[in-house]
Amino acid sequence: MSEAGAIVGAALVAVRAASVPGVSTLELDEVAETVIREAGAVPSFKGYHGFPGSICSSVNDVVVHGIPSADVVLAEGDLVSIDCGAILDGWHGDSAWSFGVGELSTADAELSDATRISLEAGIAAMVDGARLTDISHAIENGTKAAEQKFGRSFGIVSGYGGHGIGREMHLEPFLANEGKPNRGPVLVVGSTLAIEPMLTLGTTETTVLDDDWTVVTDDGSRAAHWEHTVAVTEDGPRILTVRPRS
């Protein structure tokens, strides 16, 4: 899984480097697919329940599952969330990264940072003997800590969260991004989860568009999405979707 995850990390770094004004999200999709296939892996998103892309490309008020399109062209100041997955020798890696096209507004930059802080809090809680919702609670507390740090509120998107991962991209259990601790399955060495907080600058409520994929905020506020595939080890949590330093 770490080898599959490293390919995902490399694809995300390549996509971020290509994310400049005037580039379409379809072009970003082609960048990711090329990296994945040249590494000997297969894009796990492409064809998944009919999804047409190798990445989910979610821009501004799109939370998740944005379909790559020649009609969606990046502009200066856009907040972009790229979700990407790869399969190598039957094992899955899954990761998402939010970043700006050029200079982000202060609010958008803090939103992305808050989502990263929430992810890191969730990862830190993924230890041997913890229970599933200990991670949910840690993500929620990470969001609260970010609110204190930045002096603004963030919406934790309702109904979406992380999941088990391994020989399939989506496995039980569902991992909520908020909730009370000490509930759900006990984590053991070798447990793997995709941890993925999604925050907004406004509402927690979303709508799926007519394409049956694209999830947008109901109030038009911007959203961010950060995700890593993580394993429990004897030495603590291990991120399996490490991104190469660019």
Rank of each mutant, 00 (worst) to 15 (best):
I7G: 14
I7P: 15
V8G: 10
A14R: 12
A14T: 15
R16E: 14
G22K: 12
V23R: 12
E27D: 15
E27S: 06
E30R: 14
V31Y: 13
A32T: 02
T34F: 08
R37M: 06
R37F: 01
G40T: 08
A41I: 05
F45E: 07
F45I: 07
G50C: 13
V59P: 09
N60P: 07
V62Y: 08
V72H: 08
V73P: 10
A75Y: 15
C84Q: 11
S98C: 14
G100A: 11
G100R: 09
G100K: 07
G102F: 12
G102C: 07
G102N: 11
D108F: 09
E110R: 11
S112G: 00
L119K: 12
A124C: 00
A130G: 09
T133D: 03
D134Y: 05
S136Y: 15
I139G: 12
E140A: 14
T143V: 06
S153N: 02
G155I: 01
V157R: 05
G159V: 03
M169P: 09
L175K: 04
N182A: 15
T192R: 06
I195S: 05
G202M: 01
E205A: 03
T207E: 06
L209V: 11
D210Y: 15
D212K: 02
T214K: 10
V215D: 02
V216T: 13
G220P: 00
R222T: 13
A224R: 05
A224N: 02
A224W: 04
H225M: 01
H225I: 00
H225D: 06
A231C: 03
E234P: 06
D235M: 12
P237N: 09
P237I: 06
I239P: 10
I239S: 04
I239K: 12
T241N: 07
V242F: 11
